[in-house]
Design a protein around this nucleic acid. Structure first.
Lengths: 339, 339
DNA sequence: CTGTTAGCGCCTTCAC
DNA sequence: GTGAAGGCGCTAACAG
């Protein structure tokens, strides 16, 4: 038993120091590339490190440096391509800096959501990338104020002190979509929104709603809310169409719902795009193989992820997040077959 | 500045102890629900914990307990629905045990892949869930032997000492698919495989290849390898069809490639399923909205994730992984419109 | 250039 | 029931 333990025990900085005949401090200096180490000493220590396949224990290191080289990524549901792509982008950006991602879904039982953030903090993350969620602006502000933890929010633009937002320019996006639909003479628009997000964080809904009112003159905009799945999108689209026979365009919260909506339209015998146009958001790859291919408001998940990581890193290094900054990303409408 | 630091400093066990007028030890006992604490003391301490919103620093705790309550999840590419769903399942299972996921992509520069595993270990994970990758069986075996870290591999069945495999029963799955295709009189099968996975870990390829030979009598099975994307699947399918005019069925490595293959077939003017049948693997939601809907070998990502977490937890608790166990999951063919 | 001392925040072991 | 030492593996600050 003791045998086994000694077998599996990872070498520590002490082991390296002993074998190299130096103090732990010298090893530590070699590790951190401190200049004032004699070349011969350095070589000797590095040799031992190599031989032992030693790697410093990051948790011990974090305990003293207050920097764990990990950051949290939180969303309500990770089974989402936009999220997956963003995570991939975060991971790529993070790797260079030696950072790791702790990915978590916000606890559905924790209504306010802050609990999940506190938990991330307790395990030692240096920063948090947060996807749109139930966490209210007030809670978020108090969280960052209390903790000093840099928080970057992707996908929802709000000027929360202590939080940097990176999001699609929703108003610009809505305008581009509406211009396009109007050009296609599809100005009677219905909305398919995500019921997971309460009104107060629903910038996309508000942007679309006000833009539709402004550009089409229709004051009552038909809308249905559902979970962001194909099946729910399909059913919601049917409800939307049955209750509003005059609709000739559907804008969906994301591509997944839009793909469901396409089926809902077919269910009712409507032709796309002749009878009804469909527009999604995100630009997921699967949208290009629907028949017809889906017109969509592309989000540069990868680019936004990179930006998010850099902003977070700045927040970490400066010890505090930039104040309420909002980075808006330009809309980019990918016009394909559904409009 | 000192002001700011003191503002944002998280309370420690000492703060709680001081305020409650007890020693740190007593606080620690309250935290771990130790029975021998006077009810009044406990109440007092809990009150302070509540007031301070104190949460124990997991890294400090991990340093002494050797248990971080985190585990690593590694794959070659996280932009993959099967992976995303599995992560979601892992996260749900993990939450109950208070565990967190550190998700990482295997470093493409690290050809052998073990480096990524070592890095995970250095940041303190208690176990690792590994997706099929370039990591060879030999490297994996030596890694688990040296580190004693429980590793569960999802998606590739191999009897590696120290590693538990959880995977689809590939031979069973291949048999089910072939029986179905033969019944549909589509026995001239071409294969679209994933070039990311080298031969030696390609159980899916081997199962399909040998099953096709056995059941159809065709000894030379046409195959194309490509990256697992829609576009690459499409091109590979065209190559496959152009080189093998007699093919009347394509089995793709996963649904994404299968969806690309469907486009490739259309490109060449083939009707699905009349002229050619298409089968995918995974059962991702988007497969249900292709036209026609995609026949697919479903993988219970969520269930496999739960099983993987439980196995890993057992490994962690017992201090060593179960030995070379392989859990095979039964095939489940979802027959839709492409066959 | 290198070593010593003193913790980081927590738990384990042993006293009382 | 509670407290006092001691140390997990590492680095910061000071010696020399």
């Amino acid at each position: 038993m003791a045998q086994r333990l000694s077998d599996t025990r990872r070498p520590t900085i002490n082991d390296v120091a002993d074998l190299a005949g130096v103090s732990r401090q010298t090893v530590s200096r070699v590790l951190s590339n401190h200049p004032r180490v004699a070349p011969t000493t350095r070589a000797r220590v590095e040799k031992v490190i190599e031989d032992l396949d030693y790697r410093p224990n990051q948790m011990a290191r974090a305990l003293v440096t207050k920097t764990s080289l990990t950051f949290g990524v939180a969303s309500v549901d990770m089974r989402n391509l936009h999220f997956a792509e963003t995570c991939s982008g975060l991971q790529v950006a993070a790797r260079e800096g030696g950072y790791h991602l702790v990915v978590t879904e916000l606890d559905p039982d924790d209504q306010r959501g802050v609990g999940t953030l506190e938990t991330l903090l307790a395990i030692g993350v240096d920063g948090i990338v947060l996807f749109p969620s139930m966490v209210s602006s007030a809670d978020l502000e108090s969280f960052t104020r209390r903790s000093g933890c840099p928080v970057v929010m992707i996908g929802r633009a709000s000027r929360i002190p202590g939080v940097v937002s990176i999001a699609l320019d929703e108003r610009g996006a809505a305008t581009v979509i509406l211009e396009h639909l109007i050009e296609r003479e599809k100005s009677r628009v219905g909305l398919l929104m995500n019921e997971m997000f309460p009104r107060f964080i629903h910038t996309r809904y508000e942007a679309l709603h006000s833009t539709i009112e402004r550009t089409t003159g229709h004051s009552k905009v038909p809308v249905e809310a559902a979970r962001p799945t194909i099946e729910q999108g399909r059913e919601a689209a049917r409800r939307l169409l049955e209750a509003n026979g005059d609709i000739n365009a559907i804008i969906a919260f994301n591509d997944t719902m839009a793909m469901g909506a396409m089926r809902g339209c077919l269910d009712l015998g409507l032709r796309i795009p002749e009878d009804i146009a469909v527009v999604g958001y995100d630009g997921i790859p699967y949208g290009e193989v629907t028949i017809p291919p889906l017109t969509t408001m592309v989000q540069d998940s990868f680019g936004m992820a990179g930006a998010a990581f850099r902003v977070m890193l700045t927040g970490i290094k400066e010890g505090s997040p930039v104040d309420g900054e909002v980075q808006l990303w330009p809309p980019q409408l990918l016009i394909r077959g559904t409009t």
